[in-house]
Simulated assay, not measured.
Amino acid sequence: MFITPLASLFRLVWRCLITLTGWLALSSYAMASDISREQFFSPTLGYSYPYTIYLPDGYDKDASAPYPVIYLLHGSFGNELDWATRGNLPLVANRLISAGHIPPAVFVMPGSRSWWVDGYNEPARSAFFNDLLPHIESTYNVGNTRHLRGVAGLSAGGFGALNFALERPDMFAAVAALSPASYVPAPPANSSANRHPAFLNEQGQFDQSLWERLNYNAHLEEYRIHVTPRPNSATSDIPPVPLYISAGRSDVYDAEFHARLLRQAMERIQPGYVRLDLYPGGHTWRVWRASLPAALNFMFQYVGHPKVLVE
């Protein structure tokens, strides 16, 4: 479809207004917390790794006890500003902390050009584990042990968060996947995965075999082995990672159906430690904003509690 220069200008101005409005909103949150956009050089990527970070009111870089930290991943073609400017993360975190529902915590919202995978366009998964986590843990007073870490994300970020938790259950105490784009056996025709550079081979075609190797169901058996108690043992060496899932009932990518498949698969491995919430709405920020408080409340039943071990 031909787009006129005037229409292109209008879209550019509209995007700028959205970003400006978001940052103006953030300035009001700063009264109770501190939020900033940062970056550092990533050896894995070979260029700067951007992230937005939320520090709670009263954050003390010299406190003897490190803060719990949640890594929040954005969706396909999103960026490190999304959760802060569109997802209401600062407002939600301030309210939950002020009400005593969750402890003072740090939230890291990284940016990625990929679907949080080592895909064709960038090694996003490797950069997350090899560069981002060490940078955050050496720069801020946050925990570097399993019980003080959680990971969450929306859509493609839900795909990534789920995979991170399944691949490395030794590193995360809880995971939340909001409308996760974890489609089995393949993404629907209207999914951006089909045109995202992360999954396009040298011929510009979607690589189905890569998708299958990277999707959550490829990790389930190894995860089950890690978290299932061995014979004559009451608990496993690595506890399961409790999982929160949400989806909109009118999601255009049929996220409810795929969320139910995911819950069923995970309940077989860790019964009682999977929660699925369904919301009116589609694959939109309305649903993700609505489910964020429930997701964080769920995660902080486990994050920050060293003695909470799931059998």
Rank of each mutant, 00 (worst) to 15 (best):
N88V: 00
N88A: 15
R113K: 14
D118N: 14
I97T: 13
P104S: 11
G143Q: 09
P90Q: 04
L91N: 06
P134G: 09
P90K: 05
F107H: 12
D118I: 02
L91F: 13
T85I: 15
W83K: 15
N121T: 02
A124Q: 08
P103S: 05
A127F: 02
D131H: 07
P123D: 06
G111E: 10
I136A: 04
S126D: 02
P103D: 03
P123L: 08
S126R: 10
E137K: 00
N121D: 15
L132C: 06
G87C: 07
N94M: 01
Y120H: 12
I97E: 15
R113Y: 09
L89R: 00
P90C: 04
P103Y: 05
P123S: 02
E137I: 00
E137M: 05
I102E: 08
P134E: 08
N121C: 14
N121R: 00
S114E: 14
I97F: 03
L132I: 01
A99L: 14
P110Y: 11
S114K: 03
V92L: 11
G100H: 09
S138G: 10
P104R: 14
R146F: 03
H135E: 11
I102W: 06
F128E: 03
T85C: 15
L96W: 02
D131Q: 06
G87S: 05
N130E: 11
N141H: 13
R113M: 13
S126A: 05
E122D: 14
A93D: 02
S138R: 10
N121Q: 06
N144W: 03
G100D: 12
I136W: 05
A124E: 10
N144T: 03
E137D: 04
L133H: 01
F107A: 15
T145W: 01
R125V: 00
G111P: 09
S98Q: 13
S138V: 00
N144H: 12
R125A: 13
I102F: 07
G87Y: 12
G111Q: 08
V117P: 12
N88H: 13
Y120C: 09
R95Q: 12
D118V: 01
W83L: 11
L91C: 08
I102H: 06
I97H: 10
V92R: 06
F129Y: 10
Y140V: 03
I136V: 14
T139F: 07
N121V: 04
F129G: 01
R146T: 01
L96V: 03
P90Y: 06
S126N: 03
S98F: 08
G111I: 05
G87N: 11
V117G: 11
T145C: 02
T85R: 10
S126F: 00
T85H: 06
W83R: 14
R86N: 15
L96M: 08
Y120T: 08
W116A: 04
L96I: 01
N88D: 15
L91P: 03
A84W: 01
P104Q: 12
R146Y: 03
E137W: 06
S114V: 01
R95K: 12
T145Y: 04
A99M: 13
F129K: 00
A127R: 02
P104M: 06
P104H: 14
I97N: 09
N144R: 06
G100A: 10
W83P: 10
A99W: 06
I102C: 08
P104I: 01
N141T: 04
E137L: 03
V108W: 13
G119F: 01
F107E: 14
L96K: 02
Y120N: 10
Y120M: 07
G119S: 04
N88L: 14
